[in-house]
Design a protein around this nucleic acid. Sequence first.
DNA 1: TTTAATATGGACCTTTCAGTCCATATTTAG
DNA 2: CTAAATATGGACTGAAAGGTCCATATTAAA
Lengths: 177, 177
Amino acid sequence: MQLFWRQGYEATSLQELLDEMRLSKSSFYQAFGSKHALFGRCIDRYRDSLASGMQQQLEAAPRAWDFIAGILNSVAGETQGEDARRGCLVMNTASEFGQSDAEVAARVKAGAARFRKVFLQAVKRAQAEGDIPTERDPGLLADYLVTNMSGLRTLTKAGASAAAIRRIAGVTLSALR
Amino acid sequence: MQLFWRQGYEATSLQELLDEMRLSKSSFYQAFGSKHALFGRCIDRYRDSLASGMQQQLEAAPRAWDFIAGILNSVAGETQGEDARRGCLVMNTASEFGQSDAEVAARVKAGAARFRKVFLQAVKRAQAEGDIPTERDPGLLADYLVTNMSGLRTLTKAGASAAAIRRIAGVTLSALR
DNA sequence: TTTAATATGGACCTTTCAGTCCATATTTAG
DNA sequence: CTAAATATGGACTGAAAGGTCCATATTAAA
């Protein structure tokens, strides 16, 4: 999953996967069937672990607004360190595959839907807490947040600085009020 | 350029390029040197032609605001037709390469900067025309617009409908007022 | 301890990848 | 018309791609 996340599907060779997993080819094919099948499971795992992590963060946040602002600003932190600028596996995959592979496209859609769901809860709670006007459509704002997370991460890949990301995230947030 | 745009760099084979260009291998290598070199020129060409097209649209628009709204909403149209959901070559390349290839990264950065420049002009004119408050930082809003264009196009690749794109674009626009 | 089931290493397969090379056409210049 | 320069087709290369297969280890059960 880490390799696919960092490099994408095509750019990750079977050999790299074997080396990283410390597995022989036969063990690999017995366990996973194919590179493509493993990739599918990686997307699923990524989606589940990221979504549940977000969920926990949301539940732990004193205010849903803090969660939303925190998630958007956290992209700034992804410009530094070991695994900098690797983006989001689901959106990276959307970009690499588009609609060319039906199975992959379905997984991407499911991933986007999961992330949207967390944002939807967050927006609704923020509305209940008085931080977002109740007349705004929470589903639409959730879509908007997914869009902006994706956009911010792509800008990160394009070389944007942490400071730039934080400033743009501020504008994104301002649309919710 | 069309092939790289639709499929990305790795996923486009030399053979596909030769077929599309109706060129033999020797002619190709004499003319372009390598697949990588051609790719670089494609990015440059894409950047120049897209940026100048945007510039023209901006100049032709009765109000800069119409241009901004039009560009954002035009992504909705990219969900249908022949070349649907191929995104933006520059941002697709940002996603595929990240910072892994210095030469490519520089070209991506130059591309993003060009698009930002057009948006910057547009925002400034829209401020002069009274459609965007003058106290807003035009450079920041330009960055925000690039971010949202990228995000909308990635959502397109993830399978979002034209209607969804238009609604999200509406939220994006609302942050400018 | 013997037998059955599972796991694994490594050789091998075909295909495709980007890229090179050279002999032959074709074009341009004098 | 000739000679030089350029363009091109096609054979060829080595490397790497994903994937298969089988004989040998290893483990678990009786």
